[in-house]
Simulated assay, not measured.
Amino acid sequence: MGAGHGHKLHFHGHSALHRAPAHLKVLALLGFMVVVVATPRDAYLAFAAYAVLLAVVIGASRVPPAYLLKRTVVELPFVVFAVLLPFVATGPQTEVLGVSVSQHGLEAGVALLIKGTLGVLASLTLAATTEPQDLLLGLERLRVPQQLVQIMAFMVRYLDVVTGEMQRMKVARESRGFSARNPRHWPVLARSAGALFIRSYERGERVHLAMLSRGYTGRMPR
């Protein structure tokens, strides 16, 4: 369990962005996100400038754009919400492709989609150019509370462990002829999720007990 985990977002490279200190990249991402969020939703020229700046950074990182675009699927819930927003919001109405929608909802949905996409791409660029361990060390340099950094470190280490456990449970269900095809099967999936949570919690308790027995005092050794 001491092996490297959580490297699926990292793209191995030797660009200047890869070599930059992690804490500086975190600060740059934080500043970029603050500026993007604070920008008025109708300032489309500013958003275009942010997109160009982000494209330049991605180009300098030498990370293939397709590598990042495939991972923007994490944004899907925000995309769905942005698409629904013009139909559920109130206020003056306007027509888009012959469909009447809320003007305020349309503007808010477009702004949410733009800001969310910029934020996701910037975050993925940070993850693709920074090793998880370097990122954790960078957070320590930024004086992030030590316990919070340790929680993040364990999340990185055991993400693959929990994912592998979930995959084995899926294989076990399928070997017994189970296949989730309709909502009637959701209770089985819910019980599997509950069992996965209990196993993960118990594993965490065992790991913590092992750490205490080896002299853990609240701070991880280098």
Results as ranks from 00 to 15, higher is better:
Arg219Ala: 15
Thr129Ala: 04
Tyr201Asp: 13
His7Asn: 05
Ala193Cys: 12
Ala49Gly: 12
Ser15Arg: 04
Gly109Asp: 06
Ser200Glu: 13
Gly2His: 14
Arg222Leu: 13
Thr130Gln: 05
Arg219Gly: 09
Arg143Ile: 07
Thr94Cys: 08
Trp186Lys: 10
Leu24Pro: 03
Pro187Met: 10
Ala49Gln: 05
Trp186Asp: 08
Ala193Pro: 10
Arg176Thr: 09
Val63Lys: 00
Thr217His: 14
Arg62Leu: 08
Ile58Arg: 02
Gly4Asp: 11
Ala43Asn: 05
Gly177Ile: 06
Thr129Pro: 04
Leu27Tyr: 00
Arg71Met: 02
Arg203Asp: 12
Val52Leu: 15
Glu174Phe: 06
Leu30Gln: 11
Leu29Val: 03
Lys25Tyr: 01
His5Pro: 02
Arg19Gln: 15
Val56Ala: 09
Ser100Pro: 00
Leu135Phe: 05
Ala111Leu: 05
Tyr44Ala: 10
Phe178Tyr: 14
Arg41Pro: 00
Tyr67Asp: 06
Gly105Ser: 08
Glu95Phe: 06
Ser15Asn: 06
Val35Asn: 00
Asp160Ser: 09
Leu112Tyr: 01
Arg143Asp: 13
Leu53Gly: 15
Phe154Pro: 06
Pro64Tyr: 02
Ala190Val: 15
His7Ala: 03
Tyr50Trp: 13
Arg206Gln: 14
Val63Cys: 01
Tyr67Pro: 00
Ala111Asp: 07
His18Thr: 10
Arg181Ala: 12
Leu209Thr: 12
Ala122Phe: 00
Thr130Ile: 08
Gly4Ile: 10
Asn182Pro: 05
Gln146Phe: 01
Phe197Ser: 11
Val63His: 00
Arg41Val: 03
Arg168Glu: 13
Leu135Gly: 10
Val79Tyr: 07
Leu148Gly: 02
Ala28Gly: 02
Leu76Cys: 04
Gly98Asp: 02
Trp186Gln: 13
Met1His: 13
Pro86Phe: 07
Leu9Asp: 03
Leu196Gly: 09
Thr129Arg: 00
Arg206Asp: 15
